[in-house]
Simulated assay, not measured.
Amino acid sequence: MKKENLTRLARFKLNEKRRQVEQLELMMAEFDRMCSDLDAQIASEEKKSGITDQNHFAYPMFAKAARTRRDNLGNSVNDLRVQINAAKIALEEAEAEFEHAEKLQQRDMMREDGEFQKAVG
């Protein structure tokens, strides 16, 4: 019974790590999409105003704000890459822990079956 609980706990941890990796990857994809949308908005604003020089006094404020937001999202994407790498390492460790717990449980079940066969036979 104790090994079954160990296996359940390892499976729970494994599923949690998988969920974390998926969630981080979804966030990163969403941030990338948002960066692309902001790039399009910036280009549109620059085209409307005819000014692409960010240091020009008449550069559109919306484009300036969108650039800042896009840059911040880009930094967040870079941070997420680091987090994803760490989460993938943790996932690999959880997979190894789960496999080990399953092997222990199988070994114990085989022992119990062997002892049962000896007692019956």
Rank of each mutant, 00 (worst) to 15 (best):
R18K: 10
A58C: 15
Q83D: 00
M28L: 12
L26W: 05
D53E: 06
A65V: 11
R33H: 05
A43R: 14
G74M: 08
F31W: 11
A29L: 09
L26R: 05
R19H: 15
A86L: 05
S49T: 14
I51N: 13
T68D: 09
D37S: 11
L24N: 04
D39A: 02
A66E: 10
E46R: 01
V82N: 01
A87E: 06
E22D: 05
S36L: 03
E45I: 00
S36Y: 04
E25P: 04
G50R: 13
S36K: 07
A63Y: 12
A86K: 09
M27K: 01
S49F: 00
D32L: 10
K88L: 02
K47F: 14
F31M: 10
N78A: 11
L24S: 04
V21T: 08
E22C: 03
L38T: 08
A86M: 03
L26D: 05
P60F: 00
R69Y: 14
M28Q: 13
D71F: 00
N55L: 13
A63G: 10
M34G: 05
L26Q: 05
D53G: 13
S44K: 10
A87T: 01
N78F: 03
K88N: 02
A40M: 10
E46A: 13
H56T: 15
S76V: 12
A87H: 07
K47V: 10
L80G: 03
A66H: 11
K47T: 15
E16D: 08
V21W: 10
K17L: 07
R70M: 09
K47L: 14
A63F: 14
I89M: 06
E30V: 10
Y59G: 15
A63C: 10
V21F: 14
E45H: 09
M34K: 05
G50L: 08
N55M: 06
S49Q: 04
E45K: 15
A58I: 12
K17Q: 12
R33Q: 02
R69I: 15
L73V: 07
G50E: 08
Q41C: 00
N85T: 01
D71I: 02
A58W: 15
A66G: 02
I42C: 05
R70V: 04
E46F: 07
M61F: 15
M27L: 11
S36G: 10
S44Y: 02
V21L: 09
C35R: 07
S44Q: 08
I42W: 00
C35V: 07
I51G: 12
N75S: 08
N85S: 03
L73S: 06
A66K: 02
G74R: 09
R67H: 13
A63S: 13
S49C: 12
L73F: 13
R19F: 13
I84C: 04
D71T: 15
D79R: 03
D39G: 09
A66C: 11
P60W: 00
T52F: 09
I51Y: 05
A65D: 08
A66M: 04
N72R: 04
G50K: 13
V82F: 01
E30N: 11
E16F: 06
I42G: 14
A63Q: 12
D39K: 15
A40D: 11
V77F: 06
E46T: 15
E22G: 07
S76L: 07
N72A: 11
L24Q: 05
E45F: 00
K17V: 09
H56S: 15
R18V: 02
